[in-house]
Amino acid sequence: MKRSGPLLTLLAGLLVGLFMLSLNATTGEKPTASYVKPSPSTKASPGTAPARTSAPPSPSPSRTPVPEGVYTGRTDDDSSAVAITVRDDKAIAYVCDGHNIESWLQGDVKDDGSLRLTGKGGASLDGKVKGTKEIRGTANVGSGSYAFTIDKTKKSSGLYRANSTVAGAKIEGGWIVLPDGEQVGILKRDGKPSPAPRIDPETGAVTVDGQQLTARPVTP
């Protein structure tokens, strides 16, 4: 065979891909040092091209306690919305009624798939993952207790935050974009809460008192 170099390059890429896939499937998503840089196989590619064509390993369900992502939904009493973003073993949550009750909560994800988050003013949130796409729990914000069951969104984010200063007032905004596109948010001007204007979920752009701000996806 002449000019086998390009073929070997493709084969090496295929092998690296299959290797990474099997790593993912076997180790789940524990952040470990088992990740291997592809460079060794780069070096090996011209000489050795194993003719191994093993089938891609069937991906097993993820083993993390709580799959990473954004979970959004309404509370059981339909009064408020809850969003939780999970990344690695940390979580950040926002509970908001869209008028004057809101709380940001943060904490760790435990190995058994439960999370206990805390926020300012004694706010707390207890949750537990059910299956791979659902978190069930209770949030205690202010004097109220809200039970909720929220689902993982397909989108990369459903929880946004903006901090800025407009016309001398300190602006803090939080938004939950629900799967049906509805938004629940509160905008505080110097600490005074009011319903938040809509953000553009594509870009996070929002106009506050005539000034354009950008709300960012929230991660722990």
Binding site: M20, L23, N24, T27, E29, P31, T32, A33, S34, Y35, P59, P61, S62, T64, P67, E68, G69, R87, D88, K152, T219
Partner: peptide, 13 residues
């Protein structure tokens, strides 16, 4: 989609 996979030590995500 599993939502996540391997991570490399030293990186935040």
């Amino acid at each position: 989609p599993t939502g996540t996979a391997f991570n490399l030590a030293g990186f935040s995500s």
